[in-house]
């Protein structure tokens, strides 16, 4: 199962990649994917899989793209 992690906004600068692909032999939670990629959940405000907003406990059961959006402040 191929999980593609796409970083948006300033996450790209902090983690020095735009897209990262990972292979998992069985279903995995987004929390575990974040842990494996050493991305702090403190930096992530929204997670999107396809058109759906999901939480870190979302279980990924098939190959997909996970978009991570940074925390947003005033402006």
């Amino acid at each position: 199962m191929k999980i593609s992690i796409k970083l948006e906004g300033y996450l790209k600068y902090k983690y020095s990649f735009n897209v990262l692909e990972l292979n998992y032999p069985k279903p995995v939670t987004i929390r575990q994917v974040l842990k494996d990629t050493k991305i702090s959940s403190a930096d992530v405000f929204f997670i999107k899989v396809g058109d759906l907003m999901v939480k870190e406990d979302c279980l990924l059961t098939k190959s997909t793209e996970v978009k991570l959006f940074p925390i947003i402040g005033g402006g």
Binding site: G9, K48, K67, F69, I72
Partner: peptide
């Protein structure tokens, strides 16, 4: 700049 807030906000 502050427009950086737009993409996360509209995507969400």
């Amino acid at each position: 700049g502050t427009p950086g807030v737009i993409r996360p906000t509209y995507q969400a």
